[in-house]
Amino acid sequence: MAYWVGLTGGIGSGKSQVAAAFADAGVPVIDADVISRSLTADNGKALPEIRTQFGDDIFDQDGRLNRAQLRDLVFRRPEAKQQLEALMFPLILSEIKQQQQKYSQAVYGVIDIPLLIEQPEFMVLANRILVVDTLEQNQIERVRRRSHLEDAEIRRIMASQASRKEKLLVADDVLPNNGTIQELTGKVDRLHCYYQARFLYLSRVNL
């Protein structure tokens, strides 16, 4: 049985870089965002129910989901956001569990879940929670460079996520990311060695 680390962090924290570093080290990485996009891609499992709940207007003439229009709807109507989450989260949860089975022989794996803290039902998937932590100003600067958003929009997104304090309270491990990519990669490498040793020992104890 593989052990699983739930990886999370706020927007601009560097979580995706951490996930990539784990993958480069040979660790299985399951990405909840990739799963979510696949569920809403052409012929995705979520599309029939999305059409039923939100109507034909958010689909184009070729039957493709208009993601921008759906995002706008969810932003304007909080009840629509709740509807979409109630629809999507069980599907994402089920798909993650299926993917976990593929890596049952690994020592451990990583599940990249941006809303792990905000949606506690996902915590059952992980044995430990790893939070990528950074200063608020770093988040704003990174997102501004990457996505060219205004500061007010970035702060709005940050406000919709769990606070830094809330994340740190539930973390088993915290990975500070206030330096260079090289420094971050080195920290991941050390954490990987720790996880390998810890989970290998636990797997032997629990035989």
Rank of each mutant, 00 (worst) to 15 (best):
E79K: 13
V27C: 10
L169W: 10
Q182M: 08
I50Q: 10
A21R: 07
A25D: 09
L91S: 01
D133M: 08
I30Y: 06
Q98R: 14
P48Y: 08
Y108N: 02
D24M: 12
A152M: 14
P176C: 09
A106G: 09
C193H: 14
N138Q: 12
E166L: 10
D42R: 15
L169D: 14
S203I: 12
L91R: 07
I117V: 15
L93A: 01
I11W: 09
L168I: 14
K97Q: 15
A32Q: 05
A20N: 11
K187Q: 15
L73N: 02
D173G: 03
Q82Y: 09
I154T: 06
N43R: 15
N206V: 13
L116D: 06
A68Y: 07
G186Q: 14
V110A: 04
Y195H: 01
R204L: 13
I30N: 01
L130P: 00
A106V: 13
D112F: 06
R146I: 01
N127L: 00
L202M: 12
A162P: 09
E150M: 07
I35A: 05
D72K: 15
A126I: 04
L47D: 06
Q61T: 14
D112T: 01
N127C: 04
K165W: 10
K165T: 14
D72M: 11
P176G: 08
R37S: 02
R76A: 09
G179W: 09
L149C: 02
D56T: 15
I30S: 02
I92W: 00
Q53W: 14
F59C: 03
N178E: 13
T8G: 05
Q82L: 15
D112V: 03
F22L: 05
V188Q: 01
Y103F: 15
D57N: 12
Q53D: 08
Q99H: 11
Y108R: 03
H192E: 06
E121R: 11
R155F: 11
A21G: 06
L175T: 06
G179D: 11
Q99T: 07
R51P: 04
Y3M: 06
A162D: 11
V124Y: 07
L184I: 01
Q139K: 12
Y103D: 11
E136P: 11
A32R: 05
E183S: 05
V29T: 02
N127M: 00
K81I: 00
K45E: 15
I113A: 02
D60N: 15
R156L: 14
A20Y: 09
R128Y: 00
N178M: 03
A21T: 03
L87K: 08
R146V: 04
R77M: 10
S13Q: 07
